[in-house]
Amino acid sequence: MANLLELNNVNHYFHLNTVHETHVLQDIQLTMKEGEFVTIIGGNGAGKSTLLNSIAGTFPVTSGNILLNQEDITKKNVVQRSQFISRVFQDPKAGTAVRLTVGENLAIAACRGKKRTLSRAKTAKNRSFFIEKLKGLNMGLEEKIDTEIGLLSGGQRQSITLLMATLNKPKLLLLDEHTAALDPKSSHIIMNKTKELIDQQHLTTFMITHNMEDALNYGQRLIMLHQGKIVVDLDETAKKNLTVADLLTLFQEQSGHSIQDDALLLQ
């Protein structure tokens, strides 16, 4: 099968040509097949978010190129890439417009990848479609379709963002530690919903997590980043037999020192 995503020699620097220059992504060479669910782990400052942002188009990378479906998207910005790529952020506040209702947020997401026109954003037809989708989440959110997003909890917001990101099937779904800001219970619920949605639509997914167990339990491939480089890349079979302890040992071997990141250890 052809590669859905291809990163060729991607390098990114912060504060290039200044004393603060940091080489955050170093010669990243990465391909993802269609339908693949990849989890990414790594310590603080490993470059996980920068890697995800460079795929989303938040900033132009310093060098290298990025291909989606064999099309070079390196020079495209977030808005242009949003036609194919959708995203769930770490901060539950980031993915939704708080002053708009659940229905209005979904109506905005329903236009992703389409041209916006002067036709009504909320129609009876898309309302029943949204209610159907909200029922699918099994969280009683269909009752809240006319509630302002700002009045919902972090977990509820994050599940709506997840729904928004998958309302029009994206070619690539980016999850940026999307359960990190939630309490353990909501985090668990959202992870299960995530898996359900990904399985239903066979979504190609790229998920950053700092939870080692999640990294092992979900997805078919695991990538470990360290100091801007991919240091471990495990396929489904290699990943299956791994425990959290194995993963920690692997990390120490690869990085040459033990994990300093408490968040990573505690999981």
Binding site: Q83, A94, T96, R99, A109, R112
Partner: peptide
């Protein structure tokens, strides 16, 4: 309301 969310949803802000 939310510039980041708007751009992520394809709105040319």
């Amino acid at each position: 309301d939310n510039l980041t969310m708007s751009q992520a949803n394809g709105i040319n802000t």
